[in-house]
Amino acid sequence: MTADETRGRLLDAAVRVFELKGYEGATVSLIAKEAGVTTGAIYAHYSGKAELLVDAIRMNGERATASLFRTDGPGGTAGMLLALGARLLHRDPEEGTLLIEALLAGRRDPGLAEVVTGAVAERSEGIAALLAEAQRAGELTDDVSSAAAARFMLMLGLGSMLVSELDLPAVDLSDWNTFIDRLVGAFTPEPAHVQTAPTQTGPTQPAPRQGEPS
């Protein structure tokens, strides 16, 4: 295997082991066994499991960004935001397992917390850049900060990971989609107003009284 192939195998194995065992229970030897390599192969690429975890989160983030944040579909950027908003309601709980494990482990490991924060910040900056590009193209209104909107989206995404773990009452899908449509609609340009009658240019004349000639 090439170095890139080994690294890819290690990352895929690390995701599975971290999700199954958690950060504390995942050992370098377990990850090596899952990947079918030696522990030496792991240390040839990473200083330890903390660095491996962060790289796995980054890889998953890049994959998610490539698959979710696509603006070449129907509706462009606005359509993408509508699809993302609808997806929040029925999120697969396993999607956020890796990041949740990292956040929890980071509370006990300041070094890990720092690198996890950096990886999440990269995601937020990427979303902000995408929104800013849509604003320049006129797809979204430019009267709000793209950085603030990206932070809001990040908070929604992280919150949906936690909510998906709870057995909360279902929300009507139609009601949810209506809400998301209103929310996204607030950031899309107003359609041009089409006049249905000619504009009055002269002074307004009083309407004739009944029985009087017009």
Rank of each mutant, 00 (worst) to 15 (best):
R182Q: 09
A147S: 09
L140V: 03
N177V: 07
A149S: 10
F179R: 08
G157V: 00
R151M: 05
D172R: 11
S160K: 00
V144C: 02
F179Q: 07
L162Q: 08
L154E: 08
L168R: 06
I180Y: 01
L173E: 15
D142I: 01
M153D: 04
D167N: 14
D142G: 14
L162P: 02
R151G: 05
I180H: 02
D172H: 12
G159I: 02
G157M: 01
A149Q: 12
D175K: 13
V144E: 06
A150S: 14
S145N: 01
S145V: 01
W176F: 12
A149N: 05
M161P: 02
D181G: 06
A148D: 15
E139R: 06
L173I: 10
V163L: 14
R182T: 04
P169K: 10
F179I: 08
S146E: 11
E139P: 05
L156E: 08
S164Q: 07
I180A: 05
D181T: 13
S164T: 08
M153N: 06
A170K: 13
W176P: 15
F152M: 14
L154G: 04
M161W: 09
A149R: 10
L158Y: 01
N177I: 07
L158G: 11
S174F: 11
D172W: 11
T141W: 01
F152K: 09
S160M: 04
L140H: 03
S174W: 11
S145H: 01
A148F: 06
D143H: 07
S164Y: 04
D167F: 05
V163Q: 09
L173H: 13
D175A: 15
A170Y: 06
D175V: 13
D142S: 15
D167K: 15
G159V: 03
A147H: 04
T178S: 14
L140S: 03
W176V: 11
D142A: 15
N177L: 12
E165R: 13
R151E: 07
S164W: 06
A147D: 10
M161G: 06
L173N: 08
S146A: 15
L168P: 03
S146M: 05
S146W: 05
T178D: 15
L156M: 14
L156P: 03
L183Q: 02
W176H: 14
L162E: 11
S146P: 12
G157R: 00
N177T: 13
N177M: 12
G157E: 02
